[in-house]
């Protein structure tokens, strides 16, 4: 059991919520944009982590994507939220609020 391991588990658990949040805010987002935003928010993740996560969310019907030609290379996938994705995000968001209140309360009082 190491601190890095526990921290990375925490980050992984919240990554889906953060990704959905970014896409909701941007309306449409490209994976490396998402990585950039996460970095700006000091939530450092490896860019490669995003690809399997996005594909899983897309296959679960939470996300949709469209191809866009890029001047600097191959076409890019721009992801957007589906109706179901938005519901999923709202639910996760509420759970997070509750959870963080509980955690905050517990770690402050004990």
């Amino acid at each position: 059991m190491t601190i890095e391991n526990t921290e990375s588990q925490m980050r992984k658990g919240l990554l889906e919520l953060c990704i959905l949040g970014i896409i909701r805010k941007e309306k449409e987002a490209y994976p490396s944009d998402i990585a950039e935003q996460l970095k700006l928010a000091k939530l450092v993740v490896l860019e490669g982590t995003l690809y399997p996560l996005l594909t899983r969310l897309k296959n679960a019907g939470m996300l949709d994507y469209r191809w866009e030609e890029s001047p600097s290379g191959p076409p890019r996938k721009y992801y957007s939220l589906t109706g179901e994705g938005l519901k999923f995000y709202t639910q996760l968001r509420n759970s997070w609020e509750e959870l963080s209140t509980s955690v905050h309360h517990l770690t402050n009082t004990i």
């Binding site: 490396s32 490669g48 690809y51 996005l54 290379g73 191959p74």
Partner: peptide
């Protein structure tokens, strides 16, 4: 494929 596209980019 997504990762390969990113590598190419």
């Amino acid at each position: 494929q997504d990762i390969e596209y990113r590598i190419a980019e």
